[in-house]
Amino acid sequence: MSTSLIYALTGIVIAGLGLFHYLSQRNILRKILAGNFIGTGIFLFLVSSAARQVDGPIDPVPHALVLTGIVVAVSATALLLALVCRYHDETGSLTFDEENDE
């Protein structure tokens, strides 16, 4: 088992754990954290795919992709947190099911 494969599998496990919590948690802040876990897992997977041959040169493209992905994830998280603050101000709640629609 090569090192990069271990990293790739770890990435998938982290993403899977994140997905599980993303779907099962009701608290929005926990959901956002879980979403970041999914992102981190996928980024780890992508970075590990840069080692295309054992002891060979590293492929720079996945690193560039991950950097861009991190920027996107940070902006999305910032927007989510801003919205959660507004939502908490409006409803005093951190879950979706406390009050009725409409």
Partner: peptide
């Protein structure tokens, strides 16, 4: 606010899934 928060949470899941696919293809 509620609708946009829900939308963003789902959209994020969608784009993560898409990005994973891109990584696999590459």
């Amino acid at each position: 606010i509620k609708a946009s928060l829900r939308y963003l949470l789902l959209a994020l899941l969608g784009s993560m899934s898409y990005l994973f696919g891109v990584g696999l293809l590459y």
